[in-house]
């Protein structure tokens, strides 16, 4: 799955035998129909509306988006928040995954930890973001505690800052990277690490030259998932920004929900999609490189 995500050509069958394909078609019909109805069709609707201005085909909406420094600024904020979130999630999630897979020896304990990790996913994003609004508020638990133990003289502002948004996104996206890295770690053959140790490598060298490269495709898959989800997040930034920071998805939502300009809104959507895909493709190339090194 991770290889398919990062587009590794070596693991994708080049040409399946025609009979196998024919047999697979009925199985594929349902997912293909679903994909067409709920992804391809809406996408075409958005794309075609973005290419219309004043009732005629035109690129004016894209000119309006791309020739304006403001949109580049918002795009930079959006990708900066997504990148910081991805970095924080990786720094927190990688050791956590390593701990769960390699250090926790009891199966029951590991299962318990994974359930704890996944539990928040069962609650709506909106509820969890509202929770952070209360925790991070001026009179919230975080500020009250920091002031109470004397670390701060007066409450710091989290809401309406990029830090606040990043905290909310890290909390929501952490499980994705832990699962992706954990899966990859669990499939690393321990004999390779033993061989490295036998040949005189220190534990760190073994990790850095054997374990880490072998897990890299899993890490890249997790990073891509987290980055795209963070770049396209609406609810968390909208609530935690207090309307004082704008990310691209908020601009899109505004056009569709209150301004009702589907043409401009469509152009904004396609712009965000294209830039995100470009970044994901770049990450995929790095992932390939890591895979080949092994």
């Amino acid at each position: 799955m991770t290889a398919a995500l990062t587009g590794d050509p070596a693991t994708v069958p080049a040409a399946a035998p025609p009979t196998a394909l024919r047999r697979a078609l009925p199985l594929l019909a349902a997912p293909v129909a679903f994909f067409v109805a709920f992804f391809a069709v809406p996408m075409v609707v958005v794309l075609s509306s973005s290419l219309m201005a004043g009732g005629a085909p035109s690129l004016a909406n894209y000119a309006r988006v791309l020739l304006d420094q403001y949109h580049w600024d918002v795009l930079a904020v959006t990708f900066r928040i997504a990148a910081l979130t991805t970095l924080a999630v990786t720094l927190l999630g990688y050791p956590l995954a390593y701990y769960l897979v390699r250090v926790v020896s009891s199966n029951a304990l590991r299962r318990g930890c994974v359930i704890l990790l996944l539990l928040p996913l069962f609650t709506s994003n909106i509820v969890r973001s509202f929770g952070w609004m209360i925790l991070l508020g001026r009179n919230g638990l975080v500020n009250d505690t920091l002031v109470g133990i004397g670390l701060l003289e007066r409450p710091i502002r989290f809401l309406g800052t990029e830090t606040g948004i990043v905290i909310g996104l890290v909390y929501i996206l952490l499980p994705f990277i832990v699962l992706a890295v954990g899966n990859a770690l669990a499939t690393v053959d321990p004999t390779l690490e033993e061989a490295s140790a036998d040949l005189g490598s220190s534990p760190f060298t073994t990790f850095w030259t054997v374990t880490f490269p072998l897990c890299l495709p899993g890490l890249i898959a997790g990073v891509i998932m987290v980055f795209t989800l963070a770049a396209s997040a609406y609810v968390t930034p909208a609530l935690l920004s207090g309307g004082k920071i704008t990310v691209f998805p908020m601009l899109i939502f505004q056009q569709y929900s209150t301004v009702f300009d589907v043409h401009y809104g469509g152009a904004l959507s396609i712009t965000l999609l294209v830039f995100t895909l470009v970044l994901v493709a770049l990450a995929g190339r790095i992932g390939n490189g890591g895979g080949n090194r092994s």
Binding site: M133, R138, L159
Partner: peptide, 20 residues
């Protein structure tokens, strides 16, 4: 100097309620 600009009535109620 605002604490937040509210985009839903619920967010406004929440802000007054929490003292934000």
């Amino acid at each position: 100097d605002t604490a937040l600009y509210f985009d839903s009535s619920g967010a406004a109620s929440n802000a007054y309620q929490s003292g934000e």
